[in-house]
Amino acid sequence: MFGKDFPQLNDDLLRAIKQTVDQSFLNFTRSYGDTIEWIFSPLAFLLNASERMFTNAPWPVVIAACVLVAWLATRKLSVCLFVASTLVLIGLFDMWENTMKTLSMILVSTLIAIVAGLPIGVLMARSDRVQRAINPLLDVMQTMPSFVYLIPVVMLLGIGRVPGLIAVVIYAVPPMIRLTNLGIRTVDADILEASDAFGASHSQKLWTVQLPLAMPSIMAGVNQTVMMALAMVVIASMIGVQGLGQPVLRAINSQYFTLGIFNGLAIVGIAMAIDRITQGYGARLQKHIGAQNGSR
């Protein structure tokens, strides 16, 4: 019948393509693997330091620090209470150590996503050409199933925290970049013109007008990045990232329903706590900036 079989490339050719790509990547890994590992060694150091800090700190200190952060960011008692009770519950149900490891991972990956994403977002906002070049890349990063890019990362760096961190950052950085770009592009043109008229240089405009006014949008990006990083915790545990993902993975393999649900709920609790903290901070930033529009 017409149109039943698609006229595909012949099998030998397809096999040759796959083999060539695989082989050249393998060669690349063999010759440069050590170098690449060396390049990423600062990340390993950062991860270890952060994890030591979280796991070695006495639990009352950790809870107090988290509550303090919540208070400084939101000035809301309800958020502070939520953070404290979530952490206490997690501790009572014997998930403290894993939670600390996960928090450490989230902290480091978010920091890296900000450090990498913010400048890229700024560059995108500065030039339409950069935006056109980067946007499709972000689309790929967000839609490509994360298992797929775990493969080359593992081939290059093996199993462990650093490849896990890289996978998490690849998955979590796009909203940071996009929302920074969006925030800067939507800064009120009148205010930007005023800044020009008073003799601001490019960098003065960036620091005094564009970044501060884009801050609510940038904070939304940070919020999204944290949420996506948390969503990657379980997947990253497959390549050796420790934390709340590992018990979930074990629960899937052995069908331990309760173990799965406890650790799952712990992830949800942390996600909600961080979400409220970052959203609350974003709302406080917006207080003066948003109300300005009332006058137009």
Binding site: D190, I191, E193, A194, F198, M215, H288, Q292
Partner: peptide, 30 residues
């Protein structure tokens, strides 16, 4: 622009995240 001219705008174009005083000294701060 900084030393020879100054400008006032129809829609004010104040910096919403800065206080009134910080807005007034904005041009000087640059």
């Amino acid at each position: 622009r900084s030393y020879q001219t100054a400008m006032v705008f129809q829609r004010f174009a104040l910096l919403p995240h800065r206080t009134v005083l910080d807005n007034v000294i904005y041009g000087l701060s640059l």
